[in-house]
Amino acid sequence: MSAEHLCLTGVTRIYPATEGHAAVHALGPIDLSLKPGEFFSVVGPSGCGKSTLLDVIAGLARQSAGTILFEGKPVTGEVPDGIGVVFQEDASFPWLTVFDNAAFALRRAGVPDAEVRERVRHTLAFTGLSSFAQAYPAQLSGGMRQRLCIARTLVTRPRLLLLDEPFGALDQQTRLLMGDELLKLWRETGATVLLITHSLDEAALLSDRIGVMSARPGVFIDLVETGWARERDSRLAAEAGFGVVTGRLWAALRDQSIKALAMAS
């Protein structure tokens, strides 16, 4: 395995022209390398191709050009083993209990029953859902359902965790606390994390490094190193360095957001 956990070179995504619509150049070219265990966030104006980037890295969509190497192996339109994805929408299955939701992927993969029970129990304890194991998602709050989606992904022990605005639908305070939990999970699992977010604060609080994307077609216009210690939580928001990071992010993003707004109208 090379020193990079994930390596993107010249990754581009163009939606081909269809009847009545011109081709749309959505993304790229993107060059990016993530070190193992790094927490990397992507911020950018709406419609800049952030989610497209995640889809392409996850193998849920195919890039039009460029190469993606995950642990040295190319990713081409299929989700490789070792990558876990959490979506913005609530993806918990309402017909299964919390326990069965968390066990879902392991059971489909044919993991022996005893091991499934052990790993699910561990993951639910880890994500604070143990006492709800027999509840159905409809009985949980929005924050807990999203935590369940994260648990469902973590139970497969991904080495690269891709998060597409997982806290987008939550209120600000729940969001901050979920961010703290995410940091804890990240420290304890040692996984590499790539987080897509539109919240500058969230990116500044959580990340080792932040990529700022331009309006469509999205390319990185700035890479910001935060320099935070690995042991950290949302109380960082009170520190002077936090304002410096968000200030730099906004300085890079402001013009792009104006451009994105103009494109949308």
Partner: peptide, 8 residues
Amino acid sequence: RSARAMRL
């Protein structure tokens, strides 16, 4: 999408 992400 979850189904694809879980390689079903």
